[in-house]
Design a protein around this nucleic acid. Structure first.
Length: 726
DNA sequence: TACTATTTAATTTTT
DNA sequence: TTAAATAGTA
């Protein structure tokens, strides 16, 4: 066996990981150290060299994109067909198991997957049914609560109210929610994982069967696993399975979503003879960028410890720009982006990163003015669009009459005279008889309702029945086409004014095309329609279809994870924004923000700009802020302060505002002839005596932070404060 | 039922 | 500021 293609171009650490003996292995892979590479080559090694059957492999990722990439790359490396390899997302694989063993899992054969929006609607409906005061109980909070419990593997019966009436209510709602889902055959994302876990846990035979089959478990982004995902893996591994997990504790940025880095440590406890391999050589960034990232992340206490290095060049210094406000910041970024483009570089090689989505606005305005094409990541994806979800709801109802979620969505869309009153009656009936809405509608239409309402309900029901009849036996895309047009949806959106309706109809046609090009899995027993619906729920699709123009890339630092760009701008680097105000007080939260910063820095390959604004319009109010503490954590030698091109240099201003480093030193207050110094004692008419802690800004905008003996710490605008020097 | 006024809150997101 | 959600009105 010639192992060259599998091992060539791997460094020592990578090779060690790829060829590791068949026992539990944990690969700590720094940013840009080739982790996907290791995973893919490991799979190839196992199959080609160790002689493992492709059948015995299970590779799991978090995103569809990562799964697709892994599949393609493994296929590229191997000569064996890998079509039936179990490569997929946690949710995708869990779903696969549940479809196979729906009976054991206690689900109806044609259970439907609901996404986060469906889930929220369902909870809101629940609130109405149970007459919950939603001024005291936000549906979102309950949704959060339910998902958090499921992520931890907890069912309502596992939860105690601890004498807290609030909690009791939450648990009661969780329970009611579960009932509704079970009745309608609905499964949310967290439920997919939880059910799949329980399926294995409670079926010894099944578990044994899967354990025997999947000897090798390859796990990507291991630091992002939540409790239930980890437990599922552990179950599957048993005592003989060989888990091979790749992750980076420094890039764990989803704790708020249930991810637990601690699993990296837990792994070593659960699998005592684990071999740990660290990948520390980075192939992406200049040493300047890498050293900066290392220095920042070194401030975190809870780490496994890892130091990235590169053989690459030192590269240019990281440019830090202190903008006057967010407009100035955008202008600066766009100016430098313009230069980049004018030098013949690809726009798509430049990324503008920010902490929160709202920040994209100013940047977008600037880009539009400068006529630079751009693409914003995040936002609505194809299968999440209203019209698409409407169409899917019709299809769902056709496939599964009990699906209340779908029923409620389309029962009066297009409007057919089924108003809130009628709907309320139906809900009441459904609740009283613990039956699906569909049955309630049938019962009411024939008995209690009269006149218009009864007719309307009957018409809706016969429409669904008719669509079902007319589309049985049709090809999937004809089925979709028929439903889209005959349901009245197209007609309905045609009436919508403006271009909106037009776009929606185009999207509906796009849905038909998607159905046409949908390739079902031949081994799948589901109906084509059910399979398509599951696919739509699990893969929401791309944001923009026409993503191929050369565009500057705008995204949050979260969504930048896993990507790399020659030129990166990190914007809005201010305390309060990044680290975000909501995380700043909590040490764990702050460490996660720092990891996010680490992720951001390590996206850059050659050039990194960091910008912050002294003044920023936030929630309609102008607020002042200090540069992010993370900026000060970058060693001086890697940083170059950038000054505005036209403006006269301002002495010491930026330095003074660079955080802790300069805090002790005496510094000139910017633009102030009085020569205010840090540490200087001052007197204020109202606040009394105090000491200057910090200063920033210039001219009329110069501000200082004063710690008053009696009034506490305050930021004051120098030109208004009328301070008396002591 | 549809449009308009008012209120409220304001990270990060994949499945 | 602004977006979304709700309440109120025609």
């Amino acid at each position: 066996m010639d192992v060259t293609p599998i091992l060539e171009n791997l460094n020592d650490a990578q090779r060690e990981a790829v060829t590791a003996p068949a026992r539990p292995t944990l690969v700590i892979a720094g940013a840009g150290s080739g982790k996907t590479r290791v995973l893919v080559h490991r799979a190839a090694w196992l199959i080609d060299v160790e002689g493992a059957s492709p059948h015995s492999l299970l590779a799991v990722t978090f995103t569809n994109k990562a799964a697709a990439e892994m599949r393609t790359r493994i296929e590229g490396l191997l000569n064996v067909p890998v079509q039936h390899l179990w490569i997929g997302t946690f949710h995708g694989l869990a779903h696969r198991m549940l479809r196979r063993h729906w009976r054991e899992a206690g689900l109806p054969q044609n259970f439907q997957i609901i996404d986060a929006e469906d889930q929220l609607r369902l909870i809101k409906r629940l609130f109405k049914n149970l007459e919950i005061d939603d001024s005291r109980w936000a549906p979102r909070e309950i949704q959060w609560f339910i998902n958090a419990q499921k992520d931890e593997g907890l069912r309502p019966q596992h939860l105690g109210d601890e004498g807290d009436p609030n909690r009791r209510q939450q648990i009661a709602l969780y329970e009611a929610y579960e009932e509704v889902c079970q009745r309608g055959g609905l499964v949310d994302f967290a439920e997919l994982l939880l059910r799949a876990h329980e399926l294995l846990r409670d079926n010894a035979e099944l578990l044994e069967q899967y354990r025997r089959r999947f000897r090798h478990l390859l796990v990507d982004e291991f630091q992002d696993t939540n409790a239930i995902q980890y437990d599922w893996l552990r179950l599957l591994a048993g005592s003989d399975g060989v888990p091979f997990a790749v992750g980076d504790d420094d890039q764990s940025i989803y704790r708020w979503r249930g991810a637990r880095v601690e699993h990296i440590h837990q792994f070593q406890k659960d699998f005592p003879d684990t071999r740990v391999v660290k990948l520390e050589q980075n192939y992406r960034s200049t040493s300047t960028i890498l050293n900066a990232a290392n220095a920042v992340i070194a401030n975190n206490l809870s780490r496994m410890g890892k130091n990235l290095w590169t053989e690459g060049a030192e590269g240019e210094a990281i440019k830090v720009y202190s903008a006057y406000n967010e407009r100035d910041e955008a202008d600066f970024v766009i100016g430098r982006l313009r230069d980049w483009i004018d030098q013949g570089n690809l726009r798509a090689d430049a990324a503008i990163l920010y902490r929160s989505n709202a920040q994209s606005r100013v940047l977008e305005e600037g880009l539009i003015n400068a006529r630079i094409p751009y693409r914003v990541y995040g936002g609505l994806r194809f299968f999440e669009r209203m019209e698409i979800k409407d169409a899917l709801a019709y299809l769902r109802l056709i496939a599964h009459r009990d699906d209340d979620s779908a029923f409620e969505r389309v029962v009066n869309k297009p409007t057919r005279g089924i108003g809130a009153r009628t709907l309320d009656l139906m809900r009441q009936y459904a609740r009283a008889n613990a039956c699906p809405m569909w049955r309630a509608a049938g019962a009411l239409a024939s008995d209690d309702l009269r006149g218009r309402a009864a007719n309307a309900v009957a018409a809706f029901m016969s429409l669904i029945e008719r669509l079902d009849r007319e589309t049985t036996g049709l090809e999937l895309h004809d089925q979709v086409d028929h439903v889209v047009y005959q349901s009245g949806l197209v007609e309905f959106f045609r009436k919508e004014k403006g271009e909106k309706g037009e776009t929606r109809i185009e999207n509906l046609d796009e849905l038909v095309s998607a159905a046409r090009s949908f390739t079902p899995d031949p081994a799948n027993e589901m109906s084509r329609l059910d399979e398509f619906l599951s696919h739509a729920a699990l893969e929401a699709g791309e944001g923009q279809a026409d993503a191929w123009e050369d565009c500057a890339q705008l995204m949050t630092m979260h969504s930048a994870k896993g990507l790399e760009f020659p030129l990166v701008f990190m914007c809005g680097m201010e305390d309060g924004l990044f680290p975000h105000q909501r995380s700043i007080a909590d040490p764990n939260g702050l460490e996660e923000e720092r990891r996010l910063c680490y992720v951001g820095i390590t996206r850059a390959m050659q050039t990194l700009y960091i910008t912050h604004a002294e003044q920023r319009r936030l929630h309609g109010m102008d607020s002042f802020s200090q540069p992010s503490r993370f900026i000060a954590e970058i060693p001086d030698q890697h940083v170059e302060e950038v000054r505005p091109r036209v403006q006269v240099a301002r002495p010491m201003a930026a330095r003074a505002s660079r955080g802790s480093r300069s805090a002790g030193a005496a510094a000139m207050a910017p633009g102030n002839e009085l020569g205010v110094r840090l540490g200087q004692r001052v007197r204020h008419k109202k606040f009394g005596d105090g000491v200057i802690l910090n200063c920033e800004g210039q001219g009329a905008h110069a501000r200082i932070e004063v710690n008053f003996e009696s009034a506490g710490t305050k930021w004051l605008v120098l030109s208004y404060a009328n301070l008396e020097l002591m």
